[in-house]
């Protein structure tokens, strides 16, 4: 088994050899390491992408907007990922961002996951019909289980989620009520003595 440290170092060097700058290669190393940590096929897809990169043309998208479409060649997932990571503080103001025609989207996903941690918000990603939830770079939930990740995504829809509860008020209230059963009903003497603040607390 390869260690994550070996993965990160080798990816960094391979990315540099493939023509990326050292700084971008460092980012790629971190991102692929993350995918492999989450048991997602980072090495496999990067390997295929770097092979393809010599033979086919990919578009670099440096400035991301709400709708991004590459009509000729697919977007490079690394440049796209680094741009997303760098611009996340601005992109945070957009609720939904769409990308058309992205190569090896799982590589792009790793950068979005890291962005989720930077802004402290969960991010929903829809790659064509498949969904992924990126939880603050702590984990990635998807319905891709046992399925091949696509080499090209026609549409990637990125939704930046507001920090909200994912349960109802009723569910919370019921649970809270149950938790109250660990509290002690205060008698008058406990009210006076147990907190130690004295009788006057508004002076």
């Amino acid at each position: 088994m390869k260690s994550l440290s070996e993965i990160e170092t080798t990816v960094k060097r391979a990315s540099k050899a493939a023509g990326y700058s050292w700084g971008v290669s460092e980012e790629t190393g971190k991102s692929i390491r993350l995918l492999e940590l989450f048991s997602l096929p980072g090495i496999k897809h990067l390997n295929e992408y770097l092979n393809q990169k010599n033979k086919s043309k990919f578009e670099n998208l440096n400035l991301i907007s709400e709708n991004n479409s590459s009509s000729n060649n697919p977007y490079c997932p690394i440049t796209l990922g680094v741009s997303f990571l760098d611009q996340i503080n601005v992109l945070e103001n957009l609720k939904k961002i769409e990308f058309k025609n992205v190569a090896y989207p799982i590589i792009f996903i790793s950068f979005i996951s890291r962005s989720s941690e930077i802004i402290g918000k969960k991010i929903n990603v829809k790659i064509d019909e498949k969904k992924m939830l990126l939880n603050l770079n702590v984990n990635i939930i998807s319905n891709f289980t046992d399925q091949e990740f696509p080499k090209i995504a026609s549409t990637i829809e990125v939704n930046l989620l507001e920090n909200e509860d994912n349960f109802t008020d009723d569910e919370w209230n019921n649970l809270y009520k149950l938790s109250e059963e660990t509290f002690v009903e205060e008698s008058d003497s406990l009210k006076e003595g147990a907190a130690g603040a004295g009788l006057t607390d508004n002076d």
């Binding site: 990326y20 050292w22 700084g23 971008v24 460092e26 980012e27 503080n89 601005v90």
Partner: peptide, 17 residues
């Protein structure tokens, strides 16, 4: 912004960090 600067100066990213 640094994000804007990096779009055309990727080769300096490692030292910006």
């Amino acid at each position: 912004t640094i994000a804007e600067f990096l779009t055309s100066n990727s080769e300096l990213r490692h030292v910006v960090r």
